[in-house]
């Protein structure tokens, strides 16, 4: 049985934890509100999904003609091909993600609200990541058929790599889409800024995906996985910390 002093200290810790929980809830609320708002708008307009899915389908089809799906080399290129498609679809999606906020100066209303810059940024990034992941999930079976790859044995690896790589790409992309929100030719500028910085994420994603598609063990690829996790942690922290400065010009 607990001693009386233990009960008292446990109760005190609970009371101290309450404001911390309330603060956490207060921080999470606008993140979820922004993300759900973006996803709801996308569900109705289908602006990003339609454009990105059509693009992915066409590119996958063209690649399948360009490469012989039965050849073993194709399997070694498969991760690269897939992530080329995903990264270009990502750029397409990110371009629209923040353009929506400028349409009626909605970004001003968001920035003027009590939601912190980091919450607005993370909400936008979360919505973009969910959209891209949905696109990846929808196109992976098509890719599997076109390129005759097998990944069932590495399913859990893909379930880990895809969200990590998508989040890394989205975090950088969302940050730059805020930075370029008022820039002329932003649709050209955004990929030019995002792709060089996301090279480590894309390299790691390509390596890990190719290993899974080739049916090889992933024992030697831990370094790529650590790179993905490290990139996500560093760029999420950095972007969230800088979002307020970037949003309030």
């Amino acid at each position: 049985m607990k001693a009386r002093s233990e009960w008292i200290s446990a109760a005190a810790a609970g009371e101290a934890a309450l404001p911390a929980m309330a603060r956490l809830r207060g921080w999470l609320r606008p993140i979820l509100a922004v993300a759900l708002k973006d996803l709801r708008i996308e569900r109705r307009s289908k602006e990003v999904i339609n454009a990105a899915f059509s693009f992915a389908l066409v590119v996958l089809l063209l690649f399948s003609f360009a490469f012989d799906p039965s050849a073993e080399e194709t399997r070694t290129l498969s991760g690269g091909l897939l992530w080329v498609v995903y990264s270009f679809c990502g750029a397409l999606a990110l371009n629209r993600g923040f353009a929506r906020e400028t349409q009626h100066d909605c970004l001003d209303a968001l920035t003027a609200s009590p939601a912190s810059g980091s919450a607005i940024f993370l909400g936008k990034a979360l919505a973009n990541a969910v959209l891209l992941l949905a696109l990846e999930v929808a196109t992976l079976p098509i890719f599997t058929v076109f390129y005759n790859v097998r990944w069932e044995a590495g399913f859990w690896w893909l379930a880990l790599v895809f969200p990590l790589a998508t989040w890394g790409f989205t975090v950088v992309g969302t940050m730059f889409s805020i930075l370029t929100v008022n820039v002329q030719l932003r649709e050209l500028m955004l990929p030019l800024l995002v792709f060089p910085i996301t090279v480590p994420v894309l390299m790691a994603a390509v390596e890990l995906t190719t290993t899974v598609f080739s049916g090889q063990p992933l024992a030697e690829d831990w370094a790529w996985l650590r790179l993905l996790i490290g990139f996500d942690v560093i760029f999420t922290t950095l972007s969230a910390a800088l979002a307020e400065v970037v949003l309030v010009g």
């Binding site: 708002k37 709801r40 708008i41 109705r44 349409q103 009626h104 100066d105 001003d108 209303a109 939601a115």
Partner: peptide
């Protein structure tokens, strides 16, 4: 700018800002 999202209803627009 009106700072209103075209794809959301009047209720949803206000609900979103009420949450923020």
């Amino acid at each position: 700018g009106i700072a209103i999202y075209d794809e959301l209803t009047a209720q949803e627009n206000l609900q979103f800002f009420a949450t923020l």
